[in-house]
Each structure stands twice: as C-alpha cells, then as structure tokens.
Design a protein around this nucleic acid. Structure first.
Length: 575
DNA sequence: GCCGTTTTCGGCCCGACTGTTTTCAGTCG
C-alpha cells in the first residue's frame, strides 16, 4: 500500500510547480511538473497499478523519482528544500489577479515580502511603486486585490450564471454592427461550473460594438478594454458578480476564434501540436502555413477539424484527453433532438406548481411522445407526498387523461423514498401497478457509506424499481451529497439492470459526467430527466444532455431516446 | 523538466491587454 495516494501525489507535484514559479524558475521547467501531475490524473489506474511512472508520457526521470519517493515515504525531499527557501505565505499571493511568479519573486527578493500582510504594508508605505517594472497603478491594483481577496468564489455553478447568459444574449441580439455571436468557453463545453463567460462576436465594426458593450447598465468593473477584447464584471441580483469576456473578430476568423476560446486549453495544445506536425500554426485568426505564410480560414468548426483529418469533435469532449484519437462513431453523442420523453417531474399532487393536465400539455409542446408523472411518496411529508390511496386516485386520473390522446402516452409513476432504515416507502403490490417507479434518497444524508449503499442496493434489487434518481444527492457548490461508493453503485446497476439518473437540474447534474461515462462502459442505462417542479424547469433538458455528452453518452444508452414501446418492454423485464 | 521517423540539443501553443516603458515584460486564457 502506497504511503501517498495518487491524489496526494498530484497535489504535491502542483505544489512544487507553484514554489518553482515563485522562485523564478524557467517556465517550461515549472510546467513540466504540472504536466506530470496531469499525466497521473489522466491515467485511470491507482498509483500502485501504474508501477513505473516514467513510462507515462510527460513523466521523465526527474518527476518519476519524486513520484516514487512520495509513493513510498509520503514526502519529497525536493519540496522540503523548496519550503526552506520560499516562505509559504507567498503561495496564496499567486491567486491575486495580475500577480504571477515573477512579480511575487521580485517583491520577496527586493522588499522581503513574505505574505499578504507584508505585501499590504509594502504597498501602504509606497515601496512597491519604486520597484523597476512596478508603478503607482500596480500598487493601487494590488491593494484593491488584497481588499477583495477571498470575497468571490473561484468558479460559479452554471445554475448561477444562466440568467446572465440570457441577459447578455438578449442584449447582443439588440446591438448594431454584429454579424453573429456565440458563447464559448467552459459554458459551451458544458462544465458544471465556470470562471467566466466568453462571447465571440463577428463584426466589421469593433469600435461600434465595443462602445455598446461598455455602455451596458450593469457594469460593476471594466477589467480591460482593448480594440478587440473587452473584459467586464457584470452585476446581477443577490450580489452576484459575473466576469464576462467579449472577443471581436472579422467573420472569416469566427470559426477559429470560436474554437480557440471554447478550449479547453489542453485541447488547444493538442490541436496546435498536430498542426505543427503539418508545418502549420493555429491561432484565433486561422491556420498559417509555415512555408508560405498564407493564413487559411474556415466557414465553421467542422471544416476546421476536417482540415486536420479529424471528425467534428463536440465541445463537450474537448478536454485534451484522447478526443483526437477517438473513432468517429464514438463521437456520435446523444443530442437534445433525440429526446422523446421526460420521465421525472412533479405536479400539484405533491410539491409541484402545475396540475397533471398542465404538465402534460407542456410536455406535448416540447415535442415529446411520452412522459411520466412522478410525484413524491408519503414519507416526504414536507413535499405533500402521496400515500397509497392518493396514488391510486392519481393513477385513475392519468389513465382517463391518457384516453384523450392518440399520439401521446402518459406513464403513471412515483418518486418513492428509500427510508433511513433501508426499507422502501411502498409495498410491491402498489409498485406493481405503477409504470415508472423511481427510488431516491431524501433523508439521513449523514449515514456512513455502508448504510447508504445498503439503502441504494435494496432499491436496485427490487424488481419494480426502474431508476435511481439523483444518485448522490449533491448540490453543485453547496453540498457534496451522501456517501456513495460509485464503483459499487455502477456495478449493482449493471447487475440489476437499473437505470441511473442524470438529473438535468443545473444545480444537481447528478450523476456527474465522469460517472455516467463509467456507467455506459459497463452497460448501465442512463435517464436524463428534469425533475421539474414548474413549467420552466422542463427547459433544463438541454443542460442535462450537455452533461451527458461530457460523459460521452450515446443515444442508445439514454432511455429517454427510446420509443414508448421499447421503454415499456424494458420496464416489464422483471415483472 | 521532457522529448525526439528533423533525437542528446533546442525547442516547448499563441496572442491580447496593461502598465511600464519608449520597445517590452508580465499575466492571462
């Protein structure tokens, strides 16, 4: 058994990189440590399974010996030496905007600054502005950064920026001088959290567009304002501050700029390396031939990828892993247009805002062919959960309503609680009469992993339970959820043929993409559902689909793409 | 520090913006 696990080793390598950065080491040497950490992270094996780390690309003799030392002793003599040399208080200064290793190194060497307090003192005594390369403005900025330090979260859950996205999109649609625009960045890649929003704008009049942008009425700060790039912090209700970048280019360069700012950074590095093999150079503006200096542009991203003999790589999988080596067939991911049904939602019968009829109409309008009504069960009193008698009455109402539609099917359903003692809220004779039985945990989150797993496994082994909803109970940026052994959950789901949900609510996205990918690999079916409690929450479906695509899900894995007959056959598999 | 069908040296993705300079370094994405 290793003294340090893989995660601890990765963190230590990243620590070393930070120390070296402050020491003013060669930037490539610094990034070599980060690359080594990434190489470990990307390998799915444990540190013991990996064996000789120098076999991995990006890990050579130097970093391998540090990794081996950490694995065996749980410490690194190299890091210990660095810690002797560099005060640890300098590390946090790296997170101040505008402060990098070079500047911090200079402050340390020339002014003896060792931490945030020392930096503040040096600024207040106006010593910083006298350093070569520093000035009065830099000093002011540092003081402001120190004041703001820790006030704002590093990344924002996407649920928090959706209003901003709608607001900015609406404004750009009204602006003059814009040919087209698109939101790039990690939002386009479907990440759970974002650092900022990146809008790419095609225009031949950057000054005209720029002045409209800087006139927006909710600007908190203009971070930078150049000829083609404007960075702002925009203010939204409840004190929310959203950093936004606007990048303006002429239409010819739109595709390559969109690709560049969609990232990820690691994906771009892979693409540029590939270009280099062809003696070409990729930038935002196009692809330049090294021989002729000619720059070619592309009408869209697929054409750009085709130039490098690559299939279209969807934004959601551009993470710099193995997407360039992937077969085209594996890049055919589920799309929102494939979705035929939403199978988890609530009505006024429990804690929803709309009636059954209203929800049915809203689902029909979305173009679905079927749906399931799944209110809470009796254990969940705060949500007005249904007891056996009310459930039966609801089923009658649904059956009657079903007769009104020849082209649409409403499945009866329930979101049944798995009780703290591991039992289910309804007996089998009730479940038997229900088309789509969801089981989920809403209580006793603090139980130990074994108890939680027993609860989930009881539900999965029940022949009438079709799906486990929001399997970990997490809320992004707010709570981690309960203790789930993910490998065990996926294995049991595979064995019992139980659907695992990818809850499309942007606050949940539960299961996370990395786990739906693992689940698909083991043959587990995934359900993408909005869990809507109101009309407008039905619109979260594309958010869930994006998260599914990040997990490389194919259409057939997702039960919501099946037609109603196929789904019903599946639901009756154990009955 | 890592890497190599241009391999043991000399590169390592590329460009915008700011603040400091007066042609460029540092930071950021």
């Amino acid at each position: 058994m290793a003294a340090y696990n893989k995660k601890e080793i990765i963190q230590t390598l990243e620590h070393i990189a930070v120390y070296l950065e402050i020491k003013g080491e060669n930037a490539f040497r610094v990034s070599a440590y980060r690359k080594a950490a990434q190489a470990l992270e990307r390998d799915e094996r444990t540190i013991d399974e990996i064996g000789d780390p120098s076999k991995l690309k990006g890990i050579g003799k130097g970093t391998a010996s540090i990794i081996t030392e950490l694995r065996e002793d749980g410490r690194s003599s190299f890091l210990d030496e660095l810690k002797e040399e560099i005060p640890s208080g300098l590390i946090t200064l790296l997170s101040l905007p505008g402060m990098g290793g070079k500047k911090i190194g200079k402050l340390y060497k020339e002014l003896g600054v060792e931490d945030a307090a020392g930096l503040r003192k040096a600024c207040e005594e106006k010593k910083v502005q006298n350093l070569a390369g520093f000035g009065a403005k830099t000093e002011e900025k540092i003081l402001k950064a120190l004041d703001d330090f820790g006030k704002r979260p590093d990344r924002l859950p996407i649920a928090h920026v959706m209003t901003a996205v709608e607001d900015i999109t609406g404004r750009l649609n009204e602006f003059t001088g814009i040919n087209r625009f698109e939101l790039a960045g990690s939002f386009r890649r479907g990440r759970e959290t974002v650092k900022d929003l990146d809008f790419i704008i095609s225009t031949f009049k950057p000054e005209e567009v720029g002045s409209q942008i800087t006139m927006m009425d909710n600007i908190e700060t203009i971070v930078s304002n150049g000829e083609t790039k404007i960075s702002l912090e925009l203010a939204y209700p409840e004190g929310l501050i959203v950093p936004v970048d606007f990048r303006m280019v002429e239409d010819d360069a739109f595709a390559t700029t969109l690709h560049h700012f969609t990232g990820s950074k690691d994906h771009n590095v892979l693409m540029r390396q590939r270009a280099k093999e062809k003696s070409e150079k990729i930038s935002e503006y196009g692809v330049e031939s090294a021989e002729t200096g000619e720059v070619i542009t592309f009408k869209d991203e697929p054409a750009f990828f085709a130039h490098f003999n690559l299939p279209y790589i969807p934004p959601e999988v551009r993470e710099g892993y193995d997407e360039l080596e992937t077969k085209e067939a594996d890049l055919a991911l589920v799309e929102t247009g494939d979705i035929k049904a939403d199978l988890h939602m609530h009505t006024t019968w429990s804690d929803g805002a709309q009636s059954i009829k209203e929800m049915v109409e809203a689902n029909r309008e979305r173009g679905y062919t079927h749906m399931a009504i799944t209110d809470h069960s009796k254990f969940l009193r705060v949500a007005n959960g249904l007891n056996e008698e009310r459930l039966k009455r609801q089923h009658e109402e649904i059956r009657k309503l079903n007769e009104e539609y020849s082209d649409f099917t409403i499945l009866t359903g329930i979101e049944m609680d798995i009780l703290p003692d591991g039992s289910l809220d309804f007996a089998d004779d009730i479940l038997k009469e229900t088309d789509f039985v969801i089981a989920s945990i809403h209580s006793a989150f603090k139980q130990d992993e074994e108890t939680i797993m027993k609860r989930l496994e009881t539900a999965m082994h029940n022949p009438y339970v079709a799906m486990i909803a929001h399997p970990t109970g997490r809320l992004i940026g707010r709570r981690d959820g309960y203790q789930v052994d993910m490998d065990r959950l996926i294995q049991t789901a595979a064995k019992t043929d139980t659907i695992l949900e990818l809850n499309a609510n942007p606050n949940r996205l539960d299961l996370a993409s990395e786990y739906v990918r693992k689940a698909q690999e083991q043959g587990v079916k995934i359900g993408i559902n909005t869990d809507a409690h109101r009309f407008d929450m039905l619109t979260h479906m594309p958010v869930g689909v994006k998260a599914a695509r990040r997990g490389w899900l194919k259409k057939d894995t997702v039960v919501n793409t099946w037609d109603v007959e196929t789904l019903i056959t599946f639901l009756n598999r154990n009955r």
